[in-house]
Design a protein around this nucleic acid. Structure first.
Lengths: 226, 226
DNA sequence: TCAAAAGTGTTATGATTACACCCATGA
DNA sequence: TCATGGGTGTAATCATAACACTTTTGA
């Protein structure tokens, strides 16, 4: 039997990437914010851990269940939620935009990807949560490899570079970026090459899962200026 | 009127330094852990923000009120607390050990500094919270200047080096450490020197508050191997 | 005198940056 | 042919690590 924790909710910041960095928003189908676009979230249950609650809610809203959600922090300003005292725990993750199946019927009536550049005022403190998520992502990108969950199996180095550029909001030098990333050794050459592109076909790469995970746990410092 | 949030608590990880890195523990005077040493914490109230709750609890237990507490994250495992479902929000801070006045009478019957090396099993998931706090501190140390709240007004470069060594658990090269820190420019020479030390008297330094704060907000990457 | 820490100097190595330059492909 | 991205090369600069060495002080 699922008992809601009436003063504790979860909000997920789900990043995606196609040509630019996007975030997943849902349109509330019920509750006091009915009709408004907001971060996908909901109430925590008393019979599940916070991590499980975040995973459950993400699944209910997007159909995804093999994602690694990482906690951002608790947001506990006194008046962040109207009428009631509610503390929310923020989580974030990254997924390929085309993996999200839009689900109707649950507490969300609609789901969409929104470019970070065109985000307007969100209800509650969702802008603050989103900003914190973005700051965390920017920090993350410098400490572990990123892209495994954002890119298809096969991708070019430029695809990866564009993710770094979108997240960090800077221009990177192509030759230097290539060398830096390849030297880390978590990419391996794919056997296939690009086709039907109106420029020289790029060597495609895949993530070397084992090396990728090694880097993810070991941590490193990756500093980018250009 | 203060209403407790019965499923939401705060736990503070307070680091201190004299000759080694220490953490502040209190002996519970009441509740189900009566008599046990644990992290200083307590219930959040519904009429205060989480940050305010952390600050209040720290003041009630140590007499300190001008400290900057930073949130670690929410700890929400299902069985972290017995009988009841309780989510706790971890906070951490750093203070000079001699600034803490031991207060009797409140919900803590005793307070003490414990070396991190001699920490045993703590109640609930307090070991996990402490470990997370330490990991956060280790990360922090590489991204902003540290020591302002841990050292007296005047200190030698070696004093500062020992803090870095205690936090990071590595040996640092003295000449290299001096240069690296001084180049950052948030230390200024004090007018006085050490006296009565059985070795060459060290130049003492002070934090240049303005430069220190600038570095704190700007962030940087400081990588140490030796 | 000796131990202990203060403080300076030097060198090899490697990372970072900022470019110039050529290659391949479809429109 | 041209734009677009793929891909290699290189030289200047800077940061880092390792370590040798001199200085000062009280015990």
């Amino acid at each position: 039997m699922k008992k809601l924790m009436s003063n504790l909710s979860i909000d997920n910041v789900i990043f995606g990437f196609d040509t630019e960095l996007k975030v997943l928003l849902v349109k509330h189908a019920e509750g006091i914010s009915k009709g408004k676009w907001a971060l996908p979230g909901g109430w925590a249950h008393s019979d599940e851990s916070l991590d499980d609650a975040a995973t459950r809610l993400l699944f209910e809203l997007t159909g995804l269940n093999d994602l690694f959600l990482e906690q951002l922090k608790a947001f506990g300003d006194l008046h962040r939620f109207p009428d009631q005292r509610v503390v929310t725990i923020g989580y974030y993750s990254m997924i390929r935009t085309n993996e999200v199946k839009l689900l109707a019927g649950f507490t969300a009536s609609d789901v969409k990807w929104v470019s970070l550049k065109s985000i307007q005022k969100l209800p509650y403190d969702h802008n603050e949560i989103l900003d914190f998520g973005l700051a965390t992502l920017r920090n993350k990108v410098k400490q572990e490899p990123i892209g495994l969950n954002l890119l298809p199996e096969q991708f070019s180095l430029y695809d990866l570079q564009q993710i770094y550029e979108a997240i960090l909001q800077i221009q990177l030098d192509k030759p230097n970026f290539r060398r830096k990333i390849l030297k880390m050794g978590f990419l391996k050459k794919s056997t296939i090459k690009q086709t039907k592109v109106s420029h020289r076909a790029a060597q495609l790469f895949e993530f070397d899962q084992e090396e990728y995970m090694k880097y993810k746990t070991q941590k490193f410092l990756l500093d980018f200026k250009t």
